[in-house]
């Protein structure tokens, strides 16, 4: 029952967010097209630099494409549907967590529905269309594997952002550190540096939550095996557990800000 009520809340919030975005078509399309172009250029640039005219790197090139489309889609889905989680660090610092904590819902659930990032529809469209094409070409089994990895990657990404959002509970000025960490996560999951790299277990140990977002799912989609699947599932479970524990501990340390403060606009 609680699950369905939570789902209904998420759907209602996102319906209203979308209606608000859609009500200004110029902004909506500018945001979507801008992000589409941004992603295309980023993909193209690295492809032109590393893979163009190198047939011996065809396998790595395919894996690079899958990695980026997967990361794009899950990043986009997170920013569109649970966008508030990506702003958790700012809300902890600015005291915006107050209005989330006073509601009668789970704080992470409430936090996630506070925002929806318009330009990320571009990520969803590009990643989604790309993966659908790959899925159709790859067949039913591949499509199923793809769906499974999208779900794992999405959960992993949500946890990574939540973990980053917990940094301010312990460090008072995360505004310099967090953008660095986010860029590092994205770099590992969009640039092909670690693709097809030997000893995937080592990345998991070294990179932890970062690896479950894109690297291990891409490895699974390129070379499906039970061991890689198990690694991904185990990784997701561990990341989720770590996130919930850290968030819960962090809430106990939350100090809010003075109640009387400058009003913030949209």
């Amino acid at each position: 029952m609680r699950f369905w009520r939570s789902l209904r809340l998420i759907l209602t919030a996102n319906r209203f967010h979308f209606m608000a975005h859609w009500s200004t078509p110029a902004h909506f399309w500018a945001g979507v097209i801008g992000m589409f172009v941004n992603n295309f250029l980023a993909l193209f640039g690295v492809w032109a630099m590393l893979f163009a005219g190198k047939p011996e790197l065809a396998v790595q090139c395919d894996a690079y494409l899958v990695l980026n489309l997967l990361t794009m889609l899950t990043f986009g889905l997170l920013h569109v549907f649970l966008g508030g989680l990506t702003e958790l660090d700012k809300q902890v610092v600015d005291g915006g967590l107050d209005s989330v904590l006073v509601s009668s819902r789970n704080p992470l659930l409430m936090m996630s529905i506070t925002q929806s990032h318009l330009p990320s529809w571009g990520d969803v469209l590009m990643g989604g269309v790309g993966l659908v094409i790959l899925g159709v070409r790859g067949g039913f089994v591949f499509s199923f594997e793809l769906l499974l990895m999208v779900i794992c990657s999405f959960i992993g990404f949500a946890c990574v952002f939540t973990l980053l959002g917990c940094v301010p509970f312990w460090f008072s000025r995360p505004e310099r550190l967090n953008p660095v960490l986010i860029n590092v996560v994205l770099a590992f999951n969009t640039y092909p540096a670690l693709l097809d790299y030997p000893n995937r277990f080592r990345w998991f140990l070294v990179l932890g939550p970062v690896a479950v977002v894109g690297l291990i799912p891409t490895e699974f989609l390129s070379h499906p095996s039970l061991s890689v699947l198990a690694l991904e599932v185990l990784g997701v479970v561990m990341v989720v557990s770590l996130t919930l524990v850290l968030f819960s501990l962090g809430l106990k340390r939350y100090q809010s800000t003075p109640m009387i403060s400058l009003r913030r606009g949209a």
Partner: peptide
């Protein structure tokens, strides 16, 4: 919305 993609042009090309 176009600052990022324009900067990507310079990044990629």
């Amino acid at each position: 919305y176009f600052i990022l993609p324009i900067s990507k042009i310079f990044l990629s090309l």
